Amino acid sequence: MKAFLAALMFLTRIPLPQINISKNDWHKSAIYFPLVGLVIGAILYLTSWGLERLFPTTVTAFLVVLMWIWITGGLHIDGWMDLADGFGSNKSREQILEIMKDSRVGAMGVIAAICLIGGKWVAVYELLQHDRAIMLVMSPIFARFLLISAIRLFPYRQEGGIGAGLRTSLSVIIVFLNLLFILIVAYYLIGSIGILILGGTAIFSGLLAINIYKKLEMLTGDCYGALVEWSEVVALFVSLAIWRIL
């Protein structure tokens, strides 16, 4: 239970009672990242359901995206901007890592954030217009499953760091059980099309992770955050494309 609460405390701004989290609890928290995604998605879905009774779809979509940012505390957007600044600089590996560590935000980071938020707004609007708000539940789940997959598959920036600690709890069996959990939830909520959406999202997210690894030879905390944001918005766009084709 403490490991799950640690995951909630790290990935969301949901008010929780103060508890003592041990290092072992923190390392195990990664197991529950997809479950936290389900909590976030449920909140987004209920938010959209309530707001649609008060506002037009455009405003509802905008407010849902604001809730999305608030509920995660902008944690992953910060990583997305840092990654954009680093890779947008077209510098060497060492210089990119230095740029990503810098707390200041550059032009590329701002542009990337605008594109990301704008993309989410448009995608959420289209989903609400076609009564497919259920993707607000699935997108955060898919993204956090792909996050733990990346933590498992790619080396972290330093041994003994926060990412390395998380990786110790993510055995192949744990990742597989999370995948099974996600497929069950997806099938229950959106049917077999959920498998296609997860597969399409995994392809694009994998391409991002591989490109980062080729450039940096590792992943960092900022890379994890960027991967979550990218996976979330990609899941929305992939679902729109698949539903349109079918």
Rank of each mutant, 00 (worst) to 15 (best):
P17N: 01
W26M: 11
F145R: 10
L170C: 00
E229V: 12
R157V: 11
S231Q: 10
M1S: 02
Y156P: 03
T12A: 08
V238M: 10
L166Y: 06
Q18F: 00
Y125P: 00
V64C: 04
S22C: 13
I114M: 14
W80C: 09
L216I: 14
S29F: 05
I14H: 01
I242M: 08
Q95R: 15
P34I: 09
A133Y: 02
I190T: 03
E229P: 13
W68C: 06
W49P: 00
V110G: 07
F142P: 03
S92P: 12
V65L: 13
G79D: 03
D25V: 08
I40E: 09
E229W: 09
A30E: 00
Q18S: 05
L127C: 08
I141T: 13
E217Y: 14
W26F: 12
V185M: 08
F55N: 06
Y32F: 15
R104K: 06
H76G: 02
L128H: 04
Y188W: 05
H76M: 09
I151A: 00
R244N: 14
F4G: 02
W49Y: 11
C115P: 02
V64T: 06
E232C: 10
Y125D: 04
L97P: 06
L189W: 04
F237V: 10
E98A: 15
I40P: 04
P140Y: 11
G225L: 08
V110F: 10
N24T: 15
N24C: 13
A235N: 12
W121Y: 15
A107K: 10
S171A: 01
L54A: 13
M138E: 08
M67A: 08
I212M: 15
L16H: 01
I162L: 15
K120H: 12
Q95M: 14
D222P: 08
S29W: 04
R53A: 08
H27L: 13
C223P: 03
V64F: 04
G106C: 08
L179H: 00
W243L: 12
L183Y: 02
I242F: 14
K214I: 12
I182Y: 03
L177D: 07
A112Y: 09
L189F: 09
I134Y: 08
F176C: 02
I193P: 03
I242A: 07
S48D: 04
R167N: 00
F55R: 04
L11D: 05
G109P: 00
L146M: 09
A61T: 07
N90G: 09
L75V: 11
W68E: 13
F145S: 06
T60Y: 00
V39H: 02
L83I: 13
T220R: 01
S89H: 06
A150P: 07
L170T: 01
E126R: 13
G118I: 09
R152W: 02
Q129I: 03
A6T: 05
F62V: 15
A112M: 08
S205F: 07
L97D: 05
F10W: 06
V233K: 04
T72I: 11
A7G: 09
A84G: 09
G191I: 03
L198G: 05
P15V: 04
W70G: 11
M138A: 11
L246H: 09
V105R: 01
P140E: 14
G206A: 06
I31V: 15
I21T: 08
G221A: 05
L170G: 01
I19N: 03
K23C: 10
G41Y: 02
G86E: 07
I43W: 01
I111F: 12
Q158K: 15
I148V: 09
L75N: 07
M100P: 02
E94D: 15
I19E: 02
Y45L: 13
P56Y: 10
